[in-house]
Write a protein that binds this DNA or RNA. Structure first.
Length: 470
RNA sequence: GUGGUUAUAGUUCAAUGGCAGAACACUGGUUUGUGGUACCAGUUACAAGGGUCCGAUUCCCUUUAACCACCCCA
């Protein structure tokens, strides 16, 4: 029942136009920016001072992707809106009120992606990746967009790191994905975490369970909070992780999904737990763990910070989505994956004082004095750079004093001084910043001498940042 | 989307219904081509708009934004 790709795509675009013409925004509601010098609400600049954390996340996740055989996939940040509406679920808040949806000049109803999985699946089908040897493991990372009220670590534009594996239903893949998630936080320096797992079953046993749960909750309906009364019809599973005391009490004695799985799902879950035991992961079964997106089946999991599953929320999570590819019009392909929010994990890294990436720092400062020297210094810098010697400079500054001040602040071990006299003689002064000793050397021999000095001083040229891969 | 707290310099914080202050940071200087400390000097702010008032950064309203709790999720 594989629909022709072109037809599938065209059908979507036509639907997209017909369905849901955009609600007209009243003219007076359209706001011009009061201040141009301000980021949009919920959007954030990643400043140089925060880059070490971002770089750490990039390095660690790319390394894990490589080590566990995940190939990188990048897909556009925009897709037909219906790709998300249909696959994430029409009733979910994400598509109902949080998507950035708009009509293009060409009349296509499109959306900025609110998550990565749907686009990855689209790409998987569109490019016939089912012909690759299974499992097809994909790593993706990039911005996603949700129009919601911002808070610390939660933005309208945030970045996710995603690991997905397609085409393998063996629970060993579930275990491996969870292991990757665990390794990821470990390598990021968040040592104290707990993994919670649950199984919400396949569509069949899930529906049976859901009916059971609803009838149970109906009997207690009067005691539920307002939100949960609403959830009861929209997404009853969500009642299970309501934080209201009265609801969680009711939830605590509610029927549990793990007790009502079909044979296949139960054995899948049982084998997964055996693998997790074998991996010695700090996991626990949380029968109240349900995830917000409609496409999940069987295994769902979350990574929590701290030893106890206390008040703190999940850092990130994921699960199995065995039906998604097929429902999108692809071959029946089981899949599992997880997504991690970068901003949120960085908040946690800072909280636990995790190590961030330290870029290589220049050990040498190049100072110049006088018009001729200034002119020559530009080229000298390049000559040294070509030889792999990393330097700092402050060409715009005039006085030697201020340049040495900078050199000192940057912690340079050596300052090269090129003055008027040296520029004429074809020499350079090498000044040891620790001792203050100076020597004048021939410009020709400079590269060799520097290299030698850096070596004997036990300084590695281009020494690598301290990205701990223990 | 709901409720709450907040908004003063690049940063962290003061004070005040009547000329807005510190620390750190930044720039320069303390003689002519030499850094860390010290000293001196300088740049930079009342989020935006309206109202009350002789006068508002201060009181009130609106907007915008940040943060917190919901909601939801990463």
């Amino acid at each position: 029942m594989l629909m022709p790709k072109k037809k599938l795509l065209r059908e979507k675009s036509v639907k997209a136009i017909k369905k849901n013409t955009p609600k007209k925004i009243k003219a007076e509601k359209i706001k011009e920016a009061p201040l141009l010098l301000q980021t949009l609400r919920g959007m954030k600049d990643v400043l140089p001072q925060d880059q070490p954390y971002w770089e750490q996340v990039r390095r660690v996740s790319e390394r894990l992707a490589r080590d566990y055989g995940f190939l990188r996939l990048d897909v556009p940040i925009m897709e037909y809106a219906n790709l998300f509406v249909r696959n994430i679920g029409e009733g979910t808040d994400i598509v109902e009120k949080e998507m950035y949806t708009f009509i293009t000049r060409g009349g296509d109803k499109v959306a900025l992606r609110p998550e990565l999985t749907a686009g990855n699946c689209r790409s998987y089908i569109q490019h016939g990746m089912h012909t690759l040897s299974k499992p097809v493991k994909l790593f993706s990372t990039g911005p996603v967009y949700r129009y919601e009220r911002p808070q610390d670590g939660r933005y309208r534009e945030h970045h996710q790191v995603n690991f997905d594996a397609f085409g393998e239903q063996d629970p060993i893949l579930d275990a491996q994905i969870i292991q990757v998630a665990y390794r990821l936080v470990q390598l990021l320096g968040i040592k104290s975490v707990q993994i919670q797992v649950n199984s919400i079953g396949c569509p069949v046993c899930r529906k049976n369970y859901r009916d059971l749960l609803v009838s149970y909750l109906e009997s207690k309906k009067s005691k539920l909070c307002q939100d949960c009364k609403r959830r009861l019809t929209i997404n009853p599973l969500r009642v299970l992780d309501c934080k209201e005391d009265k609801c969680s009490q009711i939830a605590s004695i509610a029927p549990q999904s793990v007790d009502h799985l079909c044979d296949d799902c139960r054995s899948h879950f049982k084998i997964l737990l055996e693998y997790l035991d074998e991996l010695e992961l700090p996991y626990s079964i949380n029968p109240h763990l349900v995830r917000g997106l409609d496409y999940y089946t069987k295994t769902v999991f979350e990574v929590w910070s701290g030893e106890e599953a206390g008040k703190q929320g999940a850092l990130f999570g994921g699960g199995r989505y065995d039906r998604l590819i097929k429902s999108m019009g692809g071959e029946d392909t089981p899949a599992i994956g997880f997504g991690m929010g970068v901003e949120r994990i960085i908040v946690e890294m800072k909280r636990v004082q995790a190590k961030a990436y330290k870029p290589p720092r220049p050990r040498i400062f190049l100072a110049q004095l006088g018009i001729l020297a200034k002119r020559k210094s530009l080229k000298l810098f390049t000559e040294l750079e070509k030889n792999g010697i990393l330097m700092a400079e402050s060409f715009g500054r005039g006085s030697l004093k201020s340049q040495l001040k900078i050199a000192n602040r940057l912690g340079a071990e050596i300052t090269l001084i090129l003055g008027q006299k040296e520029a004429l003689d074809g020499t350079v002064i090498i000044k040891n910043m620790a001792t203050g000793a100076q020597e004048t050397v021939d410009m020709e021999k400079l590269v060799d001498i520097i290299k030698k000095k850096l070596k004997t001083d036990n300084v590695v040229i281009y020494h690598n940042g301290e990205c701990d891969h223990s």
